[in-house]
Simulated scan of single mutants.
Amino acid sequence: MSIEASTYQAHINGHPATLSELIPVAFAGFAHFTAMQVRDRKIKGLDLHLNRLREASREFFGRTLPDDQLLSYIKTAVDAGPKDQSLTVSVFSRSGEFTGASMDVEPTVLVRTGAPSHGPAGPLRLSAVNHERPLAEIKHVGEVGKTYYLHQAIRQGFDDAAFIDRQGRLSEATIWNLVFWDNETVIWPKAAMLKGTMMGIVQRQLDHLNIPQRHEAITLERFRKLSGAAVMNSWTPGIAVTAIASTVIAEAKPFIELLHEAYAAEPANQL
């Protein structure tokens, strides 16, 4: 039986996924992934996605898959859907989790596609939660904390949640990177976090635009003295943040425009 719908499609190792293949994936908590937006069958930052998959596979499984192989799986999925779509590449072991059999195995690749996304309009108000993600530098599955703290934030009247580490530094938000502005310099948090592919795109294009950048430990006290804040992920290069916990700052529209300008300057890769 092939799993295919008008909105979502799933491929495993380059062929339409069958029900028997997808059942184990539903319980696969030991896996890593990357998510991207496809526009006109093109992808921005494709090199960053491939690097993420390569490094995480080496860490999780002790081996990597060739870039050409991953690209062929991605292209197959893109060609099977509309020209604009969301796409997620997950890498997992058929041996599952909680077993030594998942060590040093040939990873399996699930590519899932769906409707394109642009993220919420914003601005967003974030709660502040003391939380450090395990293996923060890897984009991995099974993190119930992110959804749990999102739900808690909404119940408290916020839109989402930002994380604070044990040193009191803001690191990231549930599914977002954080970025700040002091009217001159783009400031990235100095803390353990996932370096997003959107973050990588924006950073290198800001360099090309000669916009100064730096990394800094951002506490809530430091946050209230800044001129702007935003979140970003594969959906969008920037959504304004106007509050973290009880600290409120102005919506920095020129800053958001700058982040979008940087993303627009990134060339898209034709598969």
Rank of each mutant, 00 (worst) to 15 (best):
P189V: 03
K195T: 06
I256Y: 13
V241N: 02
F163G: 01
Y148M: 15
A10C: 06
Y148F: 15
M198K: 06
W235F: 12
G29L: 10
L110D: 01
L150F: 15
R224S: 11
I256H: 02
F27K: 14
V109D: 07
P254F: 08
P123C: 04
F30V: 06
H208Y: 04
E221K: 09
E106Q: 12
D207A: 12
F33W: 01
G62Q: 03
Q69P: 02
E132A: 14
T147Y: 13
S127R: 09
N233I: 01
D160C: 07
I12S: 07
V241I: 15
F61P: 04
F158I: 08
A268T: 01
E143L: 11
S57D: 03
W181K: 08
F158N: 08
Q152V: 14
H151V: 15
F30Y: 05
N233Y: 03
D182W: 05
E266I: 12
I244L: 09
I138V: 06
E97F: 09
S246L: 07
L226Q: 15
R214G: 07
H15D: 09
I3E: 14
K42V: 00
R204Y: 02
I12H: 11
I154P: 14
D40F: 01
A77F: 02
V111G: 00
Q156E: 09
A35T: 07
G119W: 07
A80Y: 03
G238R: 03
M232C: 15
G122W: 14
P134S: 05
A173L: 11
A161R: 06
E59M: 03
P237Q: 03
T247A: 07
R41P: 00
L53Q: 07
V109L: 13
A153I: 14
Q9G: 07
R214M: 13
G228D: 05
R94Y: 15
T247E: 04
D40M: 03
Q37D: 11
T242Y: 09
A161G: 03
D68L: 00
G45K: 10
S93V: 04
S93D: 05
R222V: 15
I175K: 06
T174R: 05
T108F: 07
S57P: 06
